[in-house]
């Protein structure tokens, strides 16, 4: 069974904006998926639905065999602990060191204090920031900040990593490094879903591409490139 399944998912916002229109898609464990489409195509809504920030008006979303629309309010945090997220704007806490930013994700889910240090160090090593642990976000380059954010997203060992335009604020060379990192994380078994505008990245990776336009699924290629021609 697929890890993530969307069955005829429709999401509307008042007054009558249809952000997602009858979208059905399956994503297997261990996949690397690009979510592409112009602004307003529904990428962000797709991600918000994955996180259960929103529930669909129609259709079903199943993650790990559970319908997430039927989750109780108390169960939502548990779903989110299995999904790491990375944003375009990094969203690091400016008054804390890199180490504390990553550790924060463990502390707020009540991880035992003894486990925190080794796990943070492991995550920082994985993203190549071991020597930046004591620095504050403003002392880091954009690429390093995004690495810190990725470390925070994976420190809880989530099964799924969602990246919403992770290279949107970065130059091409730095973007390439971030993509290598995401690929590496994917190779270790984490399912990666990345929403992006960057056609050059999509074209160079030859991964699965799910294209949205006006809220509809217009293309789903196993080894796709960008572009809207079918």
């Amino acid at each position: 069974m697929s890890l993530i399944q969307f069955f005829n998912v429709t999401k509307q916002y008042p007054p009558n904006i249809t952000a997602l229109d009858d979208v059905s898609v399956k994503i297997d464990k261990g996949e690397f998926v690009f979510l592409v489409g112009p602004s307003g195509a529904g990428k962000t809504t797709f991600i918000r639905l994955l996180f259960r920030e929103e529930v669909p008006n129609r259709g079903q979303i199943i993650i790990g065999g559970r319908s997430i629309s039927r989750l109780k309010r108390k169960e939502v945090p548990l779903l989110r602990r299995n999904i790491g997220i990375v944003f375009q704007d990094f969203r690091l806490l400016p008054d804390r060191t890199v180490f504390e930013n990553v550790a924060f994700a463990l502390r707020v889910v009540e991880t035992h204090p003894r486990e925190i240090k080794p796990r943070v160090e492991k995550a920082l090593a994985q993203v190549g920031l071991s020597n930046r642990a004591r620095m504050f976000p403003h002392q880091l380059s954009g690429g390093e900040q995004q690495r810190a954010a990725i470390a925070r997203a994976i420190v809880n060992n989530p099964g799924i990593l969602v990246a919403d335009e992770p290279t949107g604020n970065l130059d091409p060379a730095t973007s390439g490094d971030i993509m290598k990192l995401l690929e590496e994380i994917n190779r270790l078994g984490t399912t990666v879903i990345m929403a992006t505008h960057a056609w050059d990245i999509v074209n160079s990776m030859r991964k699965r591409v799910i294209a949205l336009q006006h809220g509809r699924l217009v293309r789903d290629d196993r080894e796709g490139g960008y572009g809207y021609e079918a």
Binding site: L78, R80, G84, R91, L93, F104, V108
Partner: peptide, 17 residues
């Protein structure tokens, strides 16, 4: 609010926040 936002995303419970 930034902290709360991140807490929500990494799966902190409502009462923890």
């Amino acid at each position: 609010r930034r902290e709360i936002n991140i807490m929500k995303y990494v799966g902190a419970t409502d009462w923890f926040i």
